[in-house]
Amino acid sequence: MNTPLRLEQALIKLYNAYHNNTLDPEDCTACAVGNILDNQDSWKHLSNEHGSLQLNYIGTVHQRLGRKFNGYSPQELLEIEKVFLMACGFETPLCHYNPKPQNPRDKDVLFQGLFAVVSLLCELEGLDNVMNYSKLFEQENNIPKYSLEKILS
């Protein structure tokens, strides 16, 4: 599989954040998009509400100019963040009175968010989800249909 550079870099950053316990859905520098954008918070100025898909004036200008941030458009960044927050159990857009997970930094909660983000990132590239290993368990006449080597290549 020929992995696009932006996907490869995003996956590495998210993987490292997850395993280094620096992935945090409530911190705009440590959430999914914050990590993809090298722990910067400037992306939060693309929308007026955290977790919204609605670009504000600044976000719209950047989108119309075709600006990319580590390879992602402003609209794609908002989509990534919304998917991450919702998969972690937050109601979006974030607000102090909206429901949120009891422990948003729980590894299982973060894994759900990470899984959803990786799925979306692969979808944005038009690729199969790299976290989908269901093919490993497909059988035909009690014989595996695919070898592990074929799936991983």
Score class of each variant (00 low, 15 high):
10 A>L: 06
15 Y>M: 05
15 Y>H: 09
15 Y>V: 03
16 N>I: 05
18 Y>H: 06
24 D>H: 09
25 P>G: 05
25 P>A: 07
28 C>S: 06
29 T>R: 11
30 A>V: 03
30 A>P: 01
30 A>N: 13
31 C>D: 13
31 C>K: 03
34 G>Q: 01
36 I>W: 00
37 L>Y: 02
40 Q>E: 13
41 D>P: 06
41 D>K: 05
41 D>T: 05
43 W>F: 07
43 W>S: 01
44 K>A: 13
47 S>E: 07
48 N>P: 05
48 N>G: 10
50 H>F: 11
51 G>L: 05
54 Q>R: 11
58 I>S: 07
58 I>W: 08
59 G>W: 02
65 L>V: 09
71 G>Y: 02
72 Y>D: 04
75 Q>S: 14
76 E>C: 12
82 K>V: 03
82 K>Q: 09
83 V>I: 14
84 F>A: 02
89 G>Q: 07
89 G>T: 10
92 T>N: 08
95 C>H: 14
95 C>D: 15
96 H>F: 10
97 Y>L: 11
98 N>S: 14
101 P>K: 08
102 Q>V: 15
103 N>S: 15
105 R>K: 15
107 K>Y: 12
107 K>P: 04
109 V>E: 03
114 L>D: 01
114 L>V: 05
114 L>T: 03
118 V>H: 01
119 S>A: 04
119 S>P: 00
121 L>M: 05
124 L>H: 10
126 G>P: 08
128 D>C: 06
129 N>W: 09
130 V>T: 01
130 V>C: 02
132 N>Q: 12
133 Y>F: 15
135 K>G: 07
136 L>F: 08
